[in-house]
């Protein structure tokens, strides 16, 4: 664990891989936060994801990579049942969060989302002040006490590395008035304010410039001390930089659904992929 925390940023790909090996050796003992067993997902008659069996370990970053249309966003969003509002969307197989089957009829999706927070592709702050944006999830939980709110908001903004930039205009500035990168960090602050157990990130840097992306990556790196993070990304370098585990998905050309090709510790997947298709993808031969 010590190695993981002292890792410096901005080093070469090879160095990273070398250091990651140590992390993966450490992480053998960790338990799984999320487990999928023959999990699939349909939109009506259309099957988007087929037969995924994998695990996402506690307090680790798991990256899902793959070309566009391979079902990685669908898989991510199925973890906190964001598809519930979509007509005809349904799951098959088992998706477990700790011991709970997420798609059990008895599970309330609203309560589930309080345990599994989400950060979206485009920063989507509310038309509210910076303070109210972060306090939103807390108010949903019924927290009304001013002191508690202020404390939790400050704490979340600090953890999202945004506090120093916005502390003077918490109430006077709209969340939507911030820059793109700041907005995304605000959205992360908003998500961690309620202390979820898992944070899902759907390509959180794809709408940001490289510097803002790096800040978000640093943040993800720090946040995994407390949260289990699942991140979908197009960017393989990003997956290599931030994640401990990686899953590679691909669309089956005949059946038109997304399937899991392989998953494993990031260093292993990037250096010694088991599958030829993974190797082709990470070496940039297609996708």
């Amino acid at each position: 664990m010590e190695h993981a925390m002292t890792l410096t940023r901005g080093i070469g790909f090879g160095d990273l891989v070398a250091q990651r090996t140590k992390i993966s050796q450490l992480s053998v003992a960790t338990e799984n936060k999320i487990e999928m067993l023959h999990f699939g997902f349909h939109y009506g008659a259309f099957k988007a994801v087929h037969d995924v069996t994998m695990a996402m370990p506690t307090n680790r970053v798991t990256a899902i990579i793959g070309p566009s249309g391979c079902g990685k966003s669908t898989l991510l969003r199925s973890i906190n049942r964001m598809h519930d509002a979509t007509e005809g969307a349904h799951a098959e197989g088992i998706l477990r969060l700790d011991a709970m089957n997420v798609y059990d009829a008895a599970v309330d999706s609203v309560l589930l989302r309080r345990r599994v927070g989400m950060v979206f592709q485009r920063p989507n702050p509310f038309q509210l002040s910076i303070f109210e944006n972060v306090a939103y999830g807390l108010r949903v939980l019924g927290i009304r006490h001013r002191g508690t709110l202020a404390e939790r908001v400050e704490q979340s903004l600090r953890r999202a590395a945004l506090w120093d930039e916005v502390k003077d205009r918490l109430h006077s500035s709209f969340g939507t008035a911030l820059s793109g990168g700041q907005q995304q960090r605000l959205c992360i602050a908003r998500t961690i304010a309620t202390n979820p157990e898992v944070i899902l990130m759907d390509e959180p840097c794809s709408a940001l410039d490289p510097i803002a992306s790096l800040k978000i990556e640093d943040l993800i790196y720090d946040l995994r001390e407390q949260f289990t993070i699942v991140i979908v990304t197009h960017n393989m370098q990003q997956a290599a930089r931030v994640s401990d585990f990686t899953a590679f998905m691909l669309m089956n050309r005949e059946k038109r659904y997304g399937e899991l090709i392989e998953s494993g510790p990031t260093d292993q997947l990037f250096t010694k992929p088991h599958d030829k298709r993974t190797e082709d993808y990470i070496s940039g031969q297609f996708g």
Partner: peptide, 24 residues
């Protein structure tokens, strides 16, 4: 995306409608 953001924070539909969608 506004509704999704609120939904992702565990807000029921009526709450997100009153606090986010309606003001916008």
């Amino acid at each position: 995306t506004m509704r999704e953001a609120a939904r992702g924070l565990g807000a029921p539909v009526w709450y997100s409608t009153l606090t986010v969608v309606l003001p916008a």
